[in-house]
Each structure stands twice: as structure tokens, then as C-alpha cells.
């Protein structure tokens, strides 16, 4: 069964012919070629395929593509503003939160979501909220530092 869906990705509208057994991850990577959305387990353990669906983080390997019909998706490309990186992306660069980079997009999207909640964030709380994404290189500390750094700027 094929079905046409309408998907808004980073403010661009796409009409895509999907198969019923395709996941949102399949669509983003294979149809739209947004390769910043990574995958490393295809079953919700690693969190690398995290994207924002209607502003909420979800693991796109566990969402069927049709479920995203008429919905808005944000990937890491959607965080940059007119060619320059966002404050959080800059904070990742300056705080050494990047090593191999394979998990970076997922953490940036999750960090962006947490900052958008507008609540003051504690280190322990951020650790707990980031448990759904694996990083094997950085040891997480500098990722948490980067989010905290932006959080403290915006709360000033």
C-alpha cells in the first residue's frame, strides 16, 4: 500500500509517496536525503534518529511515516539561522561537546527542546533527560556543559 503524505521539514513542505511499512527515519534519510538524522540500532535504544515532531523529540525509527502526515519535523539543519549556527551549536563547538559527531545532531535537537521549555535547568536533571541518547566518545559531560551554558545565558 502506498500513500501520499505531506510533511513539513524545517519549514519546507514536501509531498512524499510512502509505503505503509516505512518509518519516519526511512523517509527522512532515504526520500529526503537528510543524512544528519543518524541511526545505530533501529529499535529505540541509541536515540541517534531523534528529531522534533510538532516540536516534541521522538525517535524516528519507532514512528511510522504515515503518522507524520501533515506534521512539522525539525532536524538539526532547522536549528541554524540563515547559514550561521545557533547559540547551542556554537556552545557545542566552544565547550568541546563534539568528537566523532555521529550523535551530535540528536543531542543538539534534544538540547534545543530542553532550552525551549524555558525552565531553569539543573545539571542532574539534564543528565536524566539525556539518558535516551548514547554518546560513546565524549563522556557526556561537555554536552551537558554546553546546554547549561546556553541555559544560564538565556536566564540572565
Amino acid at each position: 500500500m502506498k500513500k501520499q503524505i505531506t510533511l513539513t521539514v524545517n519549514d519546507k513542505i514536501h509531498e512524499i509517496l510512502i509505503k505503509s511499512n516505512e518509518t519516519l527515519l526511512d523517509i527522512l534519510r532515504n526520500h529526503l536525503r537528510i543524512t544528519s538524522v543518524k541511526a545505530a540500532c533501529w529499535q529505540g535504544d541509541c536515540g541517534l534518529c531523534t528529531i522534533l515532531l510538532e516540536g516534541v523529540p521522538i525517535k524516528s525509527c519507532l514512528v511510522l511515516a504515515y503518522e507524520a502526515d501533515n506534521k512539522r519535523v525539525i532536524t538539526v539543519e532547522g536549528l541554524s539561522i540563515e547559514g550561521s549556527v545557533s547559540k547551542l551549536q556554537e556552545s557545542f563547538i566552544n565547550n568541546g561537546a563534539v568528537q566523532c559527531g555521529f550523535c551530535t545532531s540528536a543531542f543538539l535537537l534534544m538540547g534545543h527542546y530542553l532550552l525551549k521549555q524555558g525552565k531553569p535547568l539543573e545539571r542532574k536533571e539534564i543528565e536524566h533527560l539525556l539518558n535516551g541518547i548514547i554518546c560513546r566518545c565524549t563522556g557526556y559531560k561537555q554536552i551537558i556543559d554546553s546546554i547549561l551554558a546556553v541555559s544560564s545565558i538565556s536566564s540572565e
Binding site: 537528510i34 544528519s36 538539526v76 551549536q89
Partner: peptide
């Protein structure tokens, strides 16, 4: 900062 950082944070 890392030479590869921009590539990696921008996707």
C-alpha cells in the same frame, strides 16, 4: 576549536 566541529554541529 576543532577543525571539524562546524561540519558536525551543522549536520
Amino acid at each position: 576549536p576543532r577543525k571539524d566541529a562546524f561540519d558536525k554541529v551543522s549536520g
